[in-house]
């Protein structure tokens, strides 16, 4: 079995299994904790504000722009760039089609590659910010740095594979697939779970505030 066969087959198989089992385990575990129902009469529509907050938190309120505008735009750009590359690079669509049976139109490599490059630069900036900003220095642990590395690897290997650089394509493709497997395995055990948890977390704040008639 070649490295690529391993990466395409058993590695991806086990990564997907661990990812799914781990993520559902953690999510179910979290969501099954109890919570008391509020007994006071509500002032606003809690549920509506909950859903609104899921969306509204993509943009910070205007009063925060001066302090976090740049960081926020960069972080938003990073997330959008990453999602764009994951979802619209043609070979990726083919990957999802094989797995999910769904497919959608893709974008030319000449667009995807620069986006991937910018995305990687943004991630590097995030890393620099994490090691330099006093608040982030205080908050960051090994897991935070590991997450950045685990997220960067698929981008780096993917770009190199696509450009047929450094190693042979099939080796790079194998490394790319292996790095994705690593990413998938890392999700349930790390803060990468925020890709799902941002939904209930935002929603709850929106509900709590919305119940009191406050816009979250």
């Amino acid at each position: 079995m070649t490295l690529l066969d391993f990466a395409r087959g058993p590695a991806m198989q086990w990564a997907l299994i661990i990812f799914l089992a781990g993520a559902t385990f953690r999510l179910t575990g979290i969501l099954l904790f109890g919570r008391k129902k509020p007994l006071s009469p509500a002032r606003g529509n809690a549920r509506l504000e909950g859903y609104k907050t899921i969306v509204s938190r993509f943009m910070p309120n205007a009063v925060f722009h001066r302090r976090i505008g740049t960081v926020h735009i960069m972080s938003l750009a990073w997330h959008m760039g990453f999602i764009f590359v994951v979802l619209f690079f043609q070979p990726h669509i083919v990957f999802f089609e094989g797995l999910l049976g769904l497919s959608w139109p893709g974008v030319a490599n000449s667009i995807v590659m620069p986006v991937a490059g910018i995305t990687l630069v943004l991630l590097a900036l995030a890393f620099l910010r994490r090691i330099n900003h006093p608040v982030l220095k205080l908050l960051s642990g090994a897991g935070d740095f590991a997450t950045i590395i685990v997220t960067a690897l698929p981008l780096v290997t993917g770009m190199l594979a696509s450009a047929h650089l450094v190693l042979k394509y099939e080796t790079m493709l194998a490394l790319h697939l292996l790095s994705i497997s690593l990413f998938l395995v890392w999700v349930p055990f790390s803060k990468l779970m925020h890709v799902v948890l941002f939904l209930p977390s935002r929603k709850r704040l929106g509900e709590k505030l919305g119940y009191k008639g406050v816009k979250a």
């Binding site: 395409r8 058993p10 991806m12 997907l16 799914l20 089992a21 559902t24 990957f95 493709l173």
Partner: peptide, 29 residues
């Protein structure tokens, strides 16, 4: 089968994995 696809396509296994995760999560919590 395009080369970027995983050769693993057994969705039942994935379903079982997810179900096992849910069951374990229920137990843990």
């Amino acid at each position: 089968q395009p080369i970027s696809q995983t050769t693993f396509t057994d969705r039942t296994q994935l379903g079982i994995a997810a179900a096992a995760g849910v069951a374990a999560g229920v137990g843990a919590t």
